[in-house]
Design a protein around this nucleic acid. Structure first.
Length: 582
RNA sequence: GCGCGGUUGGUCUAGUGGUAGGACAUAAGCUUCCCAAGCUUAUAGCCCGGGUUCAAUUCCCGGACCGCGCACCA
């Protein structure tokens, strides 16, 4: 079975069984938008719940939920308005599309064509008679198109307040940093998570739900003190990982390095301990939700590949269709975002770091006697005060004599020191304001869901009959247990419905099915990945026990109805294995 | 955005200038009963717009969408 065949079968299964499908297709559909059906919405919810539990709850981080539309200044500061904006020019001969700014930069002295207005770029192309990099045809006179990957909108009536659909959930966290750090009681490190939708007006959405225009991210912004210690990595030191670092990618025969988090950190393959820590946590977590570790690796971004904000970045990649796709990114964003928002908003995006020991410093200050300076200097009095303050900070010896001399617009003035209020005092400095650095593990939920389905897809034979099933982890499977009466019989149906009610009351996701023969019902549940089925037969009416059947092995075990909820709950939690029930 | 290929019930697919057939699935009934059994019946389809034609699901043009390649993926 080729990988492409799996993709086709999975897409068909996803449509037919309600995992995901093209959105708005009754109106012809729209590219890059998918609806998650009943099974898909449940699976996605379970994946999000599992992520929240691991990365928010277990890490002691805080989760927020920010708007998907934000006003223009947010994206002016974040850089998305400029760098998310491409200029494209089409070749009239071969039809190839090229980045106009790159064409200009490659062939002329202009180094920052991206910042130029479009008419100017068009003029440069005409002036230099630039040609298509692919076929050499002249590009002069071709229109340069402006394309920003953010969806634009207007907030309120008219166009006075432009806004954009967020292209990543991260900005919703960054802009609220001043308030969030207060919730963290002004102490680093702390982490903030968010699970939500993000939007990118992709030129060409492709490959099912791998690249869409609306997608779900689960992001964690870990705010750390740049001079602080890293996290305790001992819990992840022994986690085995497959790494594809820059050095290996640049080799002709570069290979994936099999190592552990601890060793990679020690060898410097992973530079930052926070990145290392979260790579370890992520690797363990991915395995619990059903990512095949034989088709999983961490790949480091090449220098030219990194985002405008990142100093280092590792991607988690899963193998699908024989291709590696990015399912998470772990970026070191430095203080880029917080500094930019501090600059853009004028607010303070720092945390006060207390010194272990307060520092005592001598500080020379002035407290000028304005009743003297005012009459003496009139309108220049303010400037004189400024000059005195500067002088006190830079050259306190100037105040040693009876008078102090200052320069004001080329003229020298002598001011009696007694009127300057000059003094040298000891000042206690308890700490300093630091702009935190940001470590950002950013997960693509849709791509994870696709990976989990792909890695769970199985075909086998049961009693000579072909079978398709999804070997989903019980924790994330949309339906946990199917309950069937062995045949259409009022007594069996009544007991089966009692069992359904009991299992639902115990918090399990249950489906009831009395249609068709028992084998057909097993196959239905196999195909959507339900891990267990319970069948009520005539003996059940006598002995108050039912048959529990496991999806992957099709093995069966007889369980008393009284123990059913408890047994199934233990199976879901992984506290018991099915084999020990048989 | 460019190039190539494609679009027929829920899904997969056959076929045609005179509006379509199958398989699976679904529903009802009979029968059977622990792994997709059988019989009967039912529901349900030619992506959209324009052109050519007496007549277009079919031919032509445009569009939407899907797949692949290029470009793009901050």
């Amino acid at each position: 079975m080729s990988e492409e065949a799996t993709s086709r079968k999975l897409t068909e299964l996803a449509k037919r069984r309600g995992y995901f499908f093209q959105s708005s297709s009754v109106y012809g559909g729209v590219g890059g938008f998918y609806t998650f059906g009943p099974q898909g919405a449940s699976l996605k919810g379970h994946l999000e719940d599992a992520w929240r539990e691991r990365f928010s709850v277990q890490e002691g981080n805080m989760e927020i939920d920010a708007p998907t539309i934000m006003p223009e200044p947010v994206f002016e500061s974040s850089g998305h308005l400029d760098t998310f904006d491409d200029m494209l020019v089409d070749c009239p001969e071969c039809g190839e599309s090229h980045r106009a700014d790159h064409v200009v930069e490659d062939a002329t002295d202009h180094e920052d064509a991206e910042g130029l207005p479009i008419p100017e770029v068009e003029a440069i192309i005409a002036e230099y008679e630039l040609v298509c990099p692919s076929c050499g045809a002249g590009l002069a006179g071709q229109a340069v198109d402006d394309f920003n990957l953010m969806f634009a909108t207007n907030i309120g009536p008219g166009d006075a307040q432009p806004g954009y659909m967020r292209p990543e959930t991260a900005q919703g966290i960054f802009v609220e940093f001043p308030r969030l750090k207060a919730y963290a009681r002004n102490t680093l490190p702390f982490g903030v998570t968010q699970i939500g939708r993000a939007y990118r007006n992709e030129i060409s959405p492709r490959r099912s739900i791998i690249r869409t225009r609306e997608f779900t991210q689960a992001e964690l912004e870990q705010f750390v003190d740049p001079a602080g210690e890293g996290p305790d990595c001992s819990s992840v030191a022994d986690v085995p990982v497959r790494l594809y670092p820059i050095a290996e990618q640049q080799e002709d025969d570069g290979e994936i390095v099999e190592t552990t988090i601890g060793a990679a950190l020690e060898d410097g393959v992973i530079a930052d301990p926070w990145i290392a820590y979260y790579l370890g946590v992520a690797r363990e977590w991915y395995e619990t939700v059903g990512v095949d570790m034989d088709r999983f690796r961490f790949r480091q971004h090449l220098p030219g590949e990194r985002s405008h904000y990142a100093s280092d970045c590792w991607d988690a990649e899963s193998e699908i269709d024989g291709h590696w796709i990015e399912i998470a990114g772990f970026a070191h964003r430095g203080d880029y975002d917080l500094s930019k928002h501090a600059e853009g908003s004028g607010e303070r995006f720092t945390v006060f770091r207390q010194y272990d020991e307060p520092q005592i410093v001598e500080r020379a200050t002035v407290d000028p006697d304005m009743s003297y300076l005012g009459p003496e200097f009139g309108g220049d009095a303010g400037a004189v005060v400024g000059a005195l303050e500067d002088l006190a900070a830079t050259d306190r010896s100037a105040f040693d004599g009876e008078v102090v001399e200052i320069d004001l617009e080329g003229e020298t003035h002598a001011i009696p020191v007694e009127h300057t209020g000059f003094s040298v005092d000891e000042e206690t400095i308890a700490g300093e304001h630091v702009t935190p650095h940001v470590i950002e593990p950013s997960f693509g939920v849709d791509r994870l869901l696709y990976t989990v389905l792909h890695h769970a897809y199985r075909e086998d034979e049961v009693d000579g009959e072909a079978r398709t099933y999804l070997a989903l982890e019980p924790e994330v499977a949309p339906t946990f247990v199917g309950v069937f009466p062995l045949q259409g019989d009022a007594a069996l149906e009544a007991q089966a419905r009692d069992i359904v009610a009991g299992l639902r009351a115990a918090g399990l996701a249950v489906t009831y099915d009395d249609s068709g023969n028992i084998g057909r019902r097993y196959r239905r549940q196999d195909e959507v990945g339900t891990p267990f089925c319970v069948t009520v037969d005539y003996e059940s009416l006598e002995d108050e026990a039912v048959t529990v059947r496991e999806r992957d092995s099709t093995a069966q075990a007889r369980i008393p109805i009284a123990d059913l909820a408890e047994t199934l709950t233990a199976l879901r939690a992984g506290e018991r294995s099915f084999a020990e029930l048989e």
